[in-house]
Simulated assay, not measured.
Amino acid sequence: MTITQLHYVLAVAEHKNFTKAAQKVFVTQPTLSMQIQKLEEELDVQIFDRTKKPIQLTETGQKIVHQARNIVNESDRIQDIVDQQKGYVGGIFRLGVIPTVMPTLLPLFINNFIKKYPKVKLKIEELNTQAIIEKLKEGHLDAAIAATPLEQEGIKENVLYYEPFVGYIPASHRLHKKKKIAVSDLDLDDILLLQDGHCFKDGIINLCQVSRGFSDDHFQLESGSFETLIKLANEGLGMTLLPYLHTLETKESEKENLKMFEDPVPAREVSLIYNRSELKMQIIEALRSTIAGVVKGAITFQNVQIISPVNKK
């Protein structure tokens, strides 16, 4: 049994196709198939059910893949130990970022990070929270930036900042004249929300449920971006809630529509999350310190109430 064979097994388990798996690990398909067959013969078990399309893991194969992932990660740890001993911060680092954080946080820190750590090759992917959790657990991401707490076993959360919710309330809305709004003012009937899959939407629903016991079957209009929600609000279709960093680029003509909450201000917790057994801790720490440095000047709120991003259905 070799580490290389285990790499091949993990590739097939991921792609459910021998040809695609071979391309992923840069070998020919016959070579990959032969090595996996040799491993199955050595173990005297069948790892993959080749009669099914796409290829499926057998019951024993599922257990083997789980253990193979642990072994491959531990073998990578040797190089990681050497890198840390040398103080080397470099290599490929796969980072997932949720959509409601990507456009506002990334521009704040990415240039600083690239200049300070030029040997790190960041591969950044925009993913919703559920996809991030799955990819972290499967080893396809090194870390991610997401709203927390997520209550996921095996995933460590390192808080980066707390980002308040801000109301965007046009002149035609009943709450527009208020200097500050209260959570009790909210009504899901007239809040424009993001589409399913966005944890920021679930946070808003949780906020309203805590306040007045709303169910989540009131809203009817959903969109995929905050920009669209703002335009819809301007058309008199309701109000919306925005993350604080998103409001920093609001047009001058629309700033009067922004309304802060009364204390304690509802906020989301944004964290750098990663597998508890994660390697590349020197890169994770470099990311954390870089982001903390730039965000500290942008968000200074203290009295906040953290709203869970977890869907409470």
Results as ranks from 00 to 15, higher is better:
D216R: 14
H66Y: 13
T28L: 03
V65S: 06
R276C: 05
V82E: 12
I92D: 10
K180T: 12
Y274K: 02
L237N: 10
L258Q: 02
F214D: 10
K177C: 02
G203E: 12
F165E: 01
T51S: 15
I204K: 04
L6P: 00
V12G: 06
N112Q: 14
I47W: 06
P243K: 10
N158V: 09
E227Q: 13
L279R: 13
V82A: 11
A286I: 04
F93R: 04
R50A: 05
T247N: 04
D76K: 08
L10C: 03
L32Q: 09
I204P: 07
D80A: 08
E285Q: 13
N128M: 05
V183M: 05
E59V: 14
I284R: 12
G90T: 07
L160Q: 05
Y244M: 08
A147W: 05
T290I: 03
I273L: 04
T100V: 12
H198K: 00
E163M: 11
Q35C: 05
I145Q: 01
T28N: 11
N206F: 07
M281Y: 02
L57Q: 06
I132D: 00
E40H: 09
E138D: 12
K313Y: 12
E163I: 06
S289E: 15
K312F: 08
E125K: 11
G297N: 13
A68C: 13
I205D: 01
V183C: 02
I92R: 02
K312S: 15
A292I: 05
L95W: 03
V72G: 07
E74G: 00
F200L: 12
T228K: 14
L229I: 08
Q84K: 14
A171K: 15
S75R: 13
V166F: 01
Q195Y: 03
L229V: 09
A11S: 11
R174D: 13
Q302V: 15
K119Q: 11
G87S: 08
P149A: 04
P30I: 12
I307C: 05
N112H: 15
E42S: 14
T148L: 03
I230Y: 00
F18R: 09
Q37F: 02
T19N: 09
E41M: 11
L241F: 09
F261N: 07
K201W: 00
F109H: 11
Q35S: 10
K53T: 14
V295Q: 01
E40C: 08
S308Q: 10
Y161H: 10
S184Q: 14
P264Y: 03
Y244N: 01
Q209P: 00
L175H: 10
Q195R: 11
N206R: 09
